[in-house]
């Protein structure tokens, strides 16, 4: 209250402002600096939701890191989008499951070569009561029955590898989807998990990879109805994005990852991954 203390007042305000600005700049600088200071030894892998969500990468990557010291950053997308990410040069490695699309990717010069790593399998899941009586070992016969019964069926409809496989099975079953399509056939345009959530909510049939199914928790009244048909096997390939198209691709680190996947220790690691005692992925690299 005395006049002698007063002159400091305006300066106190300046200090207040200054500290605010410092906090501002500080936070901003940390973030801008972040990617540069983070581990430099990393590669980016564009892969599918099925491998990420089944937990396979959570199992494999720490083992690879221990062997090589390389961090692998996985961006989980549908196969189509994953290939597109590689095409744009935003990933070093593409690890997906759609042989036709993968071969086109390599033929177009975006990938160096396609190397087969492992397979898993698809299963047809549906209501335990099985209103279409589709249960069995024959996927095409089962789909035919679903279409004939016009039983609710959920499709990914997102141009993913699983979606591509589903369309192949319909064709093989002799069902002309364009004609047979009706309210019973629901295209969700979403990933495996959301599509399963939809199927669970609608109590509908759906084609899914076994890995995502086994790690999926919100099953409701659904159960596996068709499995074991060799046509349901689903081959995964790994491709190094072509460094001659995208010079920044970390080809040495990325090649180490690919080499490890097909090596004895990589293949064993894949075979060792189990959920509830069940093996999800079957290594079949040709060496």
């Amino acid at each position: 209250m005395t006049s002698s203390t007063r002159p400091t007042q305006p300066y106190a305000r300046r200090a207040w402002l200054a500290s605010l600005v410092i906090v501002w700049l500080g936070t901003t600088a940390t973030l801008v600096g972040m990617p540069a200071t983070a581990q430099d030894k990393f590669i980016t892998v564009a892969s599918t939701t099925s491998t990420e969500q089944s937990g396979l990468f959570g199992h494999l990557l720490p083992l690879f890191k221990k062997d090589s010291g390389i961090d692998v950053r996985v961006v989980a997308l549908g196969t189509g989008q994953a290939l597109d990410t590689g095409r744009r040069g935003d990933a070093d490695v593409v690890f997906v499951h759609d042989k036709v699309a993968e071969e086109k990717f390599v033929a177009d010069g975006f990938g160096v070569s396609r190397i087969e790593v492992m397979y898993n399998d698809f299963v047809l899941v549906g209501p335990k009561g099985d209103p279409a009586a589709a249960a069995g070992r024959d996927i095409t016969a089962a789909l035919k029955k679903v279409a004939d019964a016009k039983a609710a069926f959920v499709s990914r409809g997102d141009k993913s590898g699983t979606h591509a496989a589903e369309l192949r099975y319909w064709k093989a079953a002799g069902v002309e989807l364009d004609v047979a399509k009706g309210p019973w056939y629901r295209e969700t345009g979403s990933g495996m998990g959301p599509a399963l959530n939809t199927a669970s909510g609608m109590n509908a049939y759906i084609l899914t990879d076994r890995g995502t199914w086994l790690s999926f928790k919100n099953r409701g009244d659904l159960a596996v109805l068709v499995e074991g048909d060799t046509r349901l096997f689903n081959q995964y390939g790994v491709i190094l994005v072509n460094p001659s198209k995208h010079a920044h691709v970390k080809k040495d680190l990325a090649q180490k990852f690919i080499d490890w996947l097909v090596s004895a220790s990589g293949q064993k690691a894949i075979a060792d991954y189990k959920i509830g005692g069940e093996q999800l992925f079957f290594p079949n690299a040709k060496r």
Binding site: L31, M34, T44, R88, G89, H248
Partner: peptide
Amino acid sequence: LSRAGPLGQYGLLFTPT
């Protein structure tokens, strides 16, 4: 930010930045 985009050279896609 994509490598194929105008700011691709900075490699910022898939980073916190």
